[in-house]
Computed example of a mutant assay.
Amino acid sequence: MKNFSQSLVDNKEKIIERWLNKVCEDSRIESTYGLSRPAIINHLDHVLTALAIILAQDKKDNFETVVEASLNHGILRAEQGFDASEIAREYHLFRQIIFSTIEDCLLQATAAEIMQTIRSIDSVVDEAIARCFQSYTEQRIEELENLQNQLALHNQELTRFARTSQDNLSYLAHEIKTPLTSIIGYSDLFLRIQKQKSEIKSTYGNLEHIEQVLTSGRKLLRLINNALEISRLETGETKLKLELINPRELIEEVVHMLEPSLGKKNINIRVDSQKSPQTVITDSLKLQQIITNLLSNAIRYTESGEIEINCETIDESRWKIVVADTGIGISEEDLLNIFNPYYRVAPNSTSCVIDGTGLGLAIVSQLITIIQGEIRVDSELGNGSTFTVILPLQIQNK
């Protein structure tokens, strides 16, 4: 089988390049969006090298390299947010391209050589898949445990919040009920499957259950965090931490952080900070949260088009940040309520799916008041929205 081995060695770069293009073009592998070339390829080179050695019969078992590389690959894919189906799909494409590459050699081989080659390739790729899913599952379970610990820690503060403020409590309970029910249901199902020690073929289903738990858990945690933030702001527990910052750099950091949330949306984010003040004295964390919430809101309510962030000096004592989008817009009736906690603008279009807690703009309004600013909104239903935040160049510490 040395001809097959040499074919893989000679065409290694070609195989990797073809696989990379296939994975990036595959609509069923969405998590590659925004990832660098090395981050996508990861362990492929190690698997091909091990496969070439086994086919050359220089060593009967050369799985150590595959095992270590695939374990690391599973951890990486978990951190990158891949679904189990996406990992299975990328290995499926990998196997296809390997066989396509050595097809000419296979046509010239004997039946025995063909069978032995196919078994060797399958054994290496199957071992890589098994080890990858092993570490991927362990990483997901660890993430689930960490999430559980965070929810437990937040539970005490949420209880305190419920005791001190009954306003909107019934709404909050309703919002928590759905993801919490999902967490309990899928957790119970996953644990029962684990106790039964089901066969490997059910691995994909188990991983999907973990994904459902994590998704619901993150949504619940986000809701709790926002509710607690509103509680702290309303009770005056938040204090100013003033420092000298460069607003242009802060805006660029927020944009870079939120770019992955664009997903498949056809949105161009443009930043104009040519007239921005060089420095301002403010609370950087609160300002960052304001910009993050406004930009997240613009992305959430915009399916395609442009989001523009403008930052400029107004006069010797004031500056402003403007976030404008080409989204669904806001009606006159909704404009009167958008800064109220738990209020959400309902989209008219079924193509725009809104997933939020209704607390983002309420938090923005409270934070702007704390850092001694004001916010204005201009919007028309169907024609986008413009949020203008006016702030002092230097906050007066009272």
Rank of each mutant, 00 (worst) to 15 (best):
L147F: 05
L147Q: 11
Q150I: 13
L151I: 04
A152Y: 08
A152G: 05
Q156D: 11
E157H: 13
E157D: 14
E157Y: 12
E157K: 14
L158V: 02
T159F: 09
R160S: 03
A162S: 02
A162N: 02
R163K: 09
R163A: 11
S165E: 00
S165A: 13
Y171S: 07
P179H: 11
P179Q: 06
I183V: 12
Y186M: 00
S187E: 12
D188I: 12
I193E: 04
Q194V: 07
K195T: 03
K197L: 11
S198K: 10
E199W: 11
E199H: 00
I200A: 05
I200G: 02
S202K: 02
S202I: 05
T203V: 09
G205N: 08
N206K: 14
I210S: 06
V213T: 05
V213K: 02
T215L: 00
S216F: 06
S216Y: 03
R218M: 02
K219F: 09
L220Y: 02
L221N: 01
R222I: 13
R222E: 05
R222T: 06
A227M: 07
E229R: 15
E234W: 08
G236P: 08
G236Y: 13
G236V: 04
K239Q: 13
K239P: 02
L240F: 10
L242N: 04
L244Y: 14
L244G: 02
N246R: 10
N246F: 07
P247K: 14
R248N: 09
E253T: 14
H256Q: 14
M257R: 15
M257I: 13
E259N: 08
S261C: 01
L262Y: 12
K265W: 00
K265L: 01
I267L: 05
I269A: 08
R270L: 15
R270K: 15
S273P: 03
Q274A: 15
P277L: 12
